[in-house]
Design a protein around this nucleic acid. Structure first.
Lengths: 138, 138
DNA sequence: TTCCTTATTGATAAAATTATCAATAAGGAA
DNA sequence: TTCCTTATTGATAATTTTATCAATAAGGAA
C-alpha cells in the first residue's frame, strides 16, 4: 500500500512499530471495507496470527486514528481504514444501507466546532431511519 | 414511570409483551443513563434475572426503538432510554465528554432527509475530537 | 556487529456475549 | 373461569472478546 511508509513513520514517532501483523490487517481492510473482527481474522489467520492479536491490533490501530469504528446497528462494530471518510444511513425496516458523502455534513460539523470549541475528527457516523420504499409500505 | 402504559400498549400492538424483566431494565435506565450491559445486570440481578435475559432484553428494546445504543468510543456500547435525544462529543485526548443539544444538528438532518428521501430517527450520535484545553497542550 | 531496553506476540485462562431448548407464563377465545 | 397458543424466560452450552504473562523480536546505543 502506498501509505505504509507514512504510517510506519507516524507510529515510530510515537514509540510504536509497524509489524507484519499490523500490516496484514491493514492490507485486509484495504481490500474489504467494513469488516468485523471475525472476518478480518478469517483473512489473516493463514499467517499464523492469533485471534487475540487481531482484537489487540484493531484496538491499537483505532486508538491511533488509523482505523475507524462503525456501529453496524446490530449491536456489533466493524472496522475500516480512516482517510476515506464517509457516513451511513441504515434502514431500520429493510436493513438497506446508503453511503452518504461526508461533505453533506461539513456545514453542521463546522458549526458544532465553532459553538463548542472542539476540533472534530472526520469520523464515521451511522444514522438510522426508514428508506423511501419502506415508508410507502407502511 | 409515566410512560410505561404507552410502551405497554405499543408493544402489545406489535404482538409483544411488557414483562417484569423488561420493566426492571427500563427502570434501571430511568435512573442511570448510558449504562453498559454489566452495569444494568448489576442493578437488576437481585430480581433473579439472568445475564442472558439482560442482553436479550436490551437488544429487544433497542430493536423496538425504546432504547438507543451509543458508541462509547472504547469499543463497547452503552444503552439509554430514547426520547431524550441528545448527542456527544468525546475528546480523544483526555476522554472528557460534552453533551450537545439535538437541535444543533436538526438543520443538517433535515437536509439529509430531503437529499436522500429517508426518514431519519432521532438517534444518538457520537462525535470524536479534541477539546479546547487539550488543543492548547499540544 | 553485540548488547540492552521494551514493544509486541502467542499461548492460555478468564470474562463477556450469544445461541439452543425445554419450562413458564401472559393474553385471547370460548 | 378453563383451554390454547405462543412470547418469554432460565438454564446451559457455545462462541466471542478480553486479560495475563512469559517468549520473541525490533530498534537504538556503543
Amino acid at each position: 500500500m502506498s501509505c505504509t511508509p507514512r504510517l510506519t513513520q507516524m507510529l515510530r514517532a510515537r514509540g510504536y512499530r509497524m509489524t507484519s501483523q499490523r500490516f496484514a490487517i491493514l492490507q485486509a481492510l484495504h481490500n474489504g471495507r467494513h469488516l468485523s473482527p471475525a472476518q478480518i481474522y478469517q483473512r489473516v489467520h493463514q499467517t499464523g496470527m492469533t485471534e487475540a492479536t487481531v482484537y489487540r491490533t484493531l484496538e491499537f490501530l483505532a486508538g491511533n486514528g488509523i482505523l475507524l469504528v462503525a456501529d453496524r446497528g446490530n449491536g456489533h462494530l466493524a472496522y475500516e481504514l480512516s482517510g476515506e471518510s464517509h457516513h451511513h444511513i441504515i434502514c431500520r425496516t429493510c436493513g438497506k444501507q446508503l453511503e452518504i458523502d461526508p461533505g453533506m455534513l461539513t456545514p453542521a460539523i463546522r458549526q458544532l466546532e465553532s459553538e463548542t470549541g472542539y476540533c472534530l475528527y472526520a469520523g464515521h457516523l451511522t444514522f438510522f431511519g426508514q428508506c423511501p420504499e419502506c415508508q410507502q409500505n407502511s
